[in-house]
C-alpha cells in the first residue's frame, strides 16, 4: 500500500485502502442480482401507478373540493381557505400543471406511506431502546446528509430507472425526521403517567397503544409533516431517474435554460407543499387546542353530524 517515499507529515497521500474500488463492488453486486429485485419492483410499480391513476381520474375541480374539505376537517376554516387558494393558483399556472401535480402527489403519497410503515416502528424502537437509538442515529445522519447523487447510481443499477427508484431515493432522504421525532415523542411522554399505567396493570403493548403513542402524536405528526416536505423537495432529483411530474418539468426547463417553465414547475411544487403542510400541521393540533372536541365534532363532518342529530 505505502510504496514509495512514505511521508510522515502527509501520510494520507501515500496510503490507498481501495475503498472506492471496494464500494464499486456494491454496484457490481447490484447488477448481478437484478433479477431478485424485479418482482418486488413490479409490485410497487403497480401500487404507484394505481395511486396515480386514481388521482388523475378524479376531475380537477372535484379533487380540489375534496382537498379543501380535508383541510377544513384537519386544520379548520382558515386552513381550508389557504389550501383552496393554493390549489387554484396551482391549476392556473399552466394548462398541464394540474396533471403534473397529481403525478408528483402520487409519488409523494407512495413515499410517505412507505416512510410511515418503516419509520414509525423504527422510531418507537429508538424511543424505547437507548442502544438502538445510538446505532440508528449515525445511519439517519448519513441518510440526511449524503448527497443524493451518491446513492442514485446504485439504486438505478439495481432497480432501473422509473417510479420505484424515485420512491426509494425519496425514502432515503425523507425518512430520518419521522424516526427522530417519533423517538423524541416517545421519550417526551411524562414518565409518571407511564408509571401509573404500569401500576394499574397495563402490559407494555397497552402502554404503547393507550398511553405513549397518543401522547406522542403531536410530535410524531410534526415528523410526518417534515417527511412530506422533504419528499417534495426530492422530486427534482428523482426526475433525473425518469420520474414524471412537476420535478421533471423543472429539470427539463433547466436543461433548456427556460426560466418561465422552471418557475411554473417550481411554483407548482411550492403550492403542493403548502397544501400538504397545512393539512398535516392541522392534524398535529392536540385535543386541547380544539377545545376537547373529538375530530368528528368539528369541521364539515361535525356540521353533517350536527344536522343529522337535529333531524332525529
Amino acid at each position: 500500500m505505502a510504496d514509495t517515499a512514505f511521508d510522515w507529515l502527509n501520510p494520507f497521500a501515500s496510503v490507498d485502502l481501495g475503498i472506492a474500488t471496494w464500494a464499486d463492488g456494491i454496484k457490481q453486486w447490484a447488477i448481478s442480482n437484478r433479477e431478485l429485485i424485479q418482482p418486488i419492483k413490479r409490485f410497487f410499480e403497480t401500487v404507484i401507478v394505481g395511486i396515480e391513476h386514481a388521482l388523475q381520474s378524479i376531475p380537477p375541480l372535484v379533487m380540489l373540493a375534496i382537498l379543501v374539505l380535508i383541510a377544513w376537517q384537519a386544520a379548520g376554516r382558515r386552513g381550508a381557505i389557504v389550501v383552496g387558494i393554493c390549489l387554484g393558483i396551482l391549476g392556473l399556472l399552466a394548462p398541464e400543471a394540474w396533471g403534473l401535480a397529481m403525478t408528483t402527489l402520487a409519488i409523494v403519497t407512495a413515499s410517505v406511506i412507505l416512510c410511515v410503515a418503516i419509520g414509525l416502528p423504527l422510531g418507537v424502537l429508538a424511543g424505547k431502546n437507548d442502544r438502538f437509538e445510538a446505532i440508528i442515529r449515525p445511519v439517519l445522519d448519513t441518510m440526511q446528509t449524503i448527497p443524493a447523487f451518491v446513492y442514485l447510481v446504485p439504486v438505478v443499477m439495481m432497480i432501473g430507472i422509473g417510479n420505484v427508484s424515485g420512491v426509494i431515493v425519496t425514502i432515503i432522504f425523507a425518512l430520518p425526521p419521522l424516526v427522530r421525532l417519533t423517538s423524541l415523542g416517545i421519550r417526551g411522554v411524562n414518565p409518571s403517567v407511564v408509571e401509573a399505567a404500569r401500576a394499574f396493570g397495563a402490559s407494555p403493548g397497552q402502554i404503547l397503544r393507550k398511553v405513549e403513542l397518543p401522547l406522542a402524536t403531536p410530535t410524531i405528526l410534526a415528523g410526518l409533516n417534515q417527511t412530506i416536505m422533504l419528499s417534495l423537495s426530492m422530486v427534482v432529483i428523482a426526475s433525473m431517474i425518469s420520474v414524471k411530474g412537476l420535478g421533471n418539468e423543472v429539470l427539463r426547463a433547466m436543461g433548456r435554460l427556460d426560466a418561465g417553465k422552471a418557475i411554473v414547475g417550481g411554483l407548482g411544487i411550492v403550492m403542493l407543499a403548502i397544501v400538504l403542510d397545512r393539512i398535516t400541521q392541522g392534524l398535529g393540533r392536540s385535543g386541547r387546542d380544539r377545545g376537547h372536541l373529538m375530530w368528528w365534532q368539528t369541521g364539515p363532518v361535525g356540521l353533517i353530524t350536527a344536522l343529522f342529530k337535529k333531524q332525529t
Binding site: 403517567v193 408509571e195 401509573a196 399505567a197 394499574f200 396493570g201 393507550k210 398511553v211 401522547l215 385535543g287
Partner: peptide
C-alpha cells in the same frame, strides 16, 4: 399485571392522570 389491576390501587403525588 393481574395483581396490579385487581388487587392494588395507587395514588401518586404528581396525580399522573392521562391528559388525553
Amino acid at each position: 399485571r393481574r395483581l396490579r389491576a385487581e388487587k392494588i390501587g395507587m395514588v401518586f403525588q404528581s396525580m399522573a392522570l392521562m391528559p388525553h
